[in-house]
Simulated scan of single mutants.
Amino acid sequence: MAPLPGPYSGKSSLAMVARVSAFSFGLVYGSLKLKVLKIQAKSHKKAEAKAHH
């Protein structure tokens, strides 16, 4: 059986730092975008409810 590859293919620590920071940026960006979308959906539902009355 072949040995498992390490957490990153690059040998430099800079490659790992770049990968980790890109990953955390993705997580932060994703959660912020989700919050914005939820807020927009809420306000859209409120506007629809007002239009129906």
Rank of each mutant, 00 (worst) to 15 (best):
H53L: 11
V17K: 04
L34M: 14
A49L: 13
L4W: 03
K38T: 10
A18E: 05
L14D: 04
H44W: 10
S31W: 15
L37E: 07
V28W: 01
L32Q: 04
R19D: 10
K45Q: 14
P3D: 04
V36G: 04
K46A: 07
S31D: 10
K11H: 14
F23A: 07
L14W: 02
F25P: 01
K35P: 00
S9Q: 11
H52N: 14
S24P: 00
K45P: 02
G26Q: 05
S12A: 00
A18Q: 11
L34I: 07
R19L: 14
R19A: 15
Q40N: 13
K33T: 13
S31M: 13
R19S: 05
A18D: 07
L34N: 11
A47S: 11
Q40A: 09
S9H: 13
P5A: 01
S43F: 12
K33S: 11
E48V: 15
S24A: 09
H52T: 09
K38D: 05
K46S: 04
Q40P: 03
L27K: 03
E48Q: 15
L32S: 07
G26V: 01
P3C: 04
A22G: 10
E48M: 13
G10M: 03
F23Q: 05
Y29G: 12
S24D: 11
V28Y: 06
S21K: 00
F23I: 06
V20R: 12
